[in-house]
């Protein structure tokens, strides 16, 4: 019994140490975000805040258009998410439930394109977007990402699991492909669609290199670029930088609290393809 308790205690000690490692950077950003400027740049740094200065959250809006950053990012992530849901569910339905010429070939094209690292297409895509005059526009940020091979694959696997009898029954009632897709397949696939929605939203929300390449004006920047720009301005004080970071990570924290289940399900679905 004693041995058992000692083992439990050891497990909790390890877990607590690991949790400190995982949480500390985020907690520390919250601490810094409410510190007065003198304290944030004091030496030695304070472990917990001794001053409370919520005005940081207002001041940060004065230095950089952080509201525009957040608005841009949500708009771009939202457009990409909806676009990917539409294109991927249409393509997945064709692959899962329809017969057509060249199905095998087109499907293998989709699967093969998952192997291509995005960096390989980055330079030509930049040149394409530039020649379309899409630099610094929402089209440039969204259109190249509106289709997703991974999402198509994910939804196809889910559509294939839907019982065949359902399709036959719907056919008997005179239901065509379009009506069957809209009225039966989509509502039944809410879990998979939810997973893809969270996944694609987070992916776009967090993307860094592409927005860095194609946005120039401050008003078009997304959050990720805007935040790192904040940091490169030497004159800004760290408490404001971290007030900005806190504002930026709050939405994703909320997403984690409410979407953890969806995310876990999506990840295990991803693991199956490996």
């Amino acid at each position: 019994m004693k041995k058992h308790i000692a083992r439990q205690a050891a497990v909790y000690l390890i877990l607590i140490a690991a949790a400190v490692f995982a949480l500390y950077p985020v907690v520390y950003s919250f601490f810094l975000s409410v510190m007065k400027p003198e304290e944030a740049s004091a030496f030695p740094p304070s472990i917990v805040p001794h001053s409370f200065n919520p005005a940081n959250f207002i001041d940060v809006f004065g230095i950089v258009p952080i509201a525009a950053f957040i608005g841009n990012t949500f708009l771009v992530s939202g457009i990409v998410m909806i676009g990917q849901l539409i294109t991927a569910s249409l393509a997945a339905y064709a692959f899962a439930k329809m017969d057509f010429k060249g199905k095998g070939f087109i499907f293998s094209l989709f699967v093969a394109s998952m192997m291509v690292p995005w960096e390989v297409t980055m330079i030509p895509n930049y040149l394409t977007v530039r020649s379309l005059n899409w630099l610094d526009t929402y089209q440039g940020l969204t259109v190249p990402f509106l289709a997703t091979a991974f999402g198509t694959f994910l939804l196809r696997q889910f559509f294939l699991q839907l019982p065949k009898e359902l399709y036959e029954a719907a056919r008997m009632d005179g239901c065509g492909h379009i009506r069957y897709f809209l009225l039966h397949v989509l509502p039944l696939s809410r879990p998979a669609i939810g997973t893809l929605a969270v996944y694609s939203f987070l992916n776009t929300y967090n993307s860094y290199l592409w927005p860095l390449l194609i946005t120039n004006s401050e008003m078009m920047r997304t959050v990720q670029i805007g935040i790192s720009m904040l940091e490169f301005q030497e004159s800004t004080s760290w408490n404001l930088v971290f007030a900005g970071i806190t504002l930026v990570i709050l939405p994703s924290l909320l997403l984690l609290i409410f979407g953890l289940k969806q995310l876990v399900r999506g990840m295990s679905a991803g693991a199956l393809k490996g």
Binding site: A19, A22, V26, Q224, I225, E231, L253
Partner: peptide, 17 residues
């Protein structure tokens, strides 16, 4: 929750922190 948390931080904010 603690161990999943870093996943939702983007590389931009994580690197600045």
């Amino acid at each position: 929750f603690a161990f999943s948390l870093p996943m939702v931080l983007s590389v931009g904010s994580a690197a600045v922190i």
